[in-house]
Amino acid sequence: MGQVSGDGATRARPRPPIGKVLWIVAGVLFLLGPLVATFFSSINYNQLGYRFTAYSNIVSSRALRGPLWLSFQIAVLTAALSFALMLPTVFWLHLKVPKARPIIETISILPYVIPPIVLVVGISQLTRGWPEWLIGKPFFLVPIYVVTCLPFLFRALDAGMRSIDVMTLTEAARGLGATWRQVITKVIMPNLRTSILGGTFLALAVVLGEFTIASLLLFKTFPIYLTEVGQNEAQGAAALSLLSFGFSWGFLLLLNSVGKRVGSGASLDIAPRVGR
């Protein structure tokens, strides 16, 4: 290993950090190489040369719009339900019972630890015999995704609340005669705009990338559909793979820039684990 600081902490004569550069080059090759390779296969039509047909086919495919719209709706509903449930909880955690933090943090991390497939097994077991109109609709995924998103949204909200000094704001608002409901909707929520926006992007990224649960419960969300369309030709599959990442990435990048702009709230410190 080399040095923690590049300023030559322990040596009189600086030597070039060859080892570090090698690690970085290897890392870049490993992380970017496959993407570049896939891009080549997506535009390589052997005898026909290079062309972007696969991409234009996908973009012009009308059939994709339904699932995309569906996933979008699911994501927004997931975010809405999540915030409705978690805002009061996190608020209450900050204001009244900071001692409950370890417990709540543990709970919030559980969905990250429990394999999604086990969750699916449990849910399909539990809901056996439930009416079709309830479990047959894709919106049945919303409550499940709420749980999946919990670790990330909890952290986003928690960080957001930590940065605004909830206690002082609340006391000030209460002192001015606000009701509890007004405190949350008029004071806390506007101050958490960034966190809420970030959380929504997160939900979008999760829903647009989530694979295991949707496929096993046999719902045709956007990511499932993506992998079905155009699998018959290699270029299409490659193009779709890149596009499907592109979608999740777009939202995560948005989230990242939102977090950076305000310097608080949501961040990518734990990446959502989707589509695995």
Binding site: L31, G33, P34, L35, A37, T38, F40, S41, S42, A205, G209, F211, T212, P223, L226, T227, A234, A237, A238, L240, S241, L242, S244, F245, S248, W249, L252, L253, N256, L268, A271, P272, R273, V274, G275, R276
Partner: peptide, 21 residues
């Protein structure tokens, strides 16, 4: 940033990407 994105790679797309590679 890239790690934040890469850590959430997975599923069929990831499989395709490596098959292409």
């Amino acid at each position: 940033t890239f790690s934040g994105l890469g850590a959430q790679f997975g599923g069929v797309p990831l499989a395709f990407i490596f098959i292409s590679t």
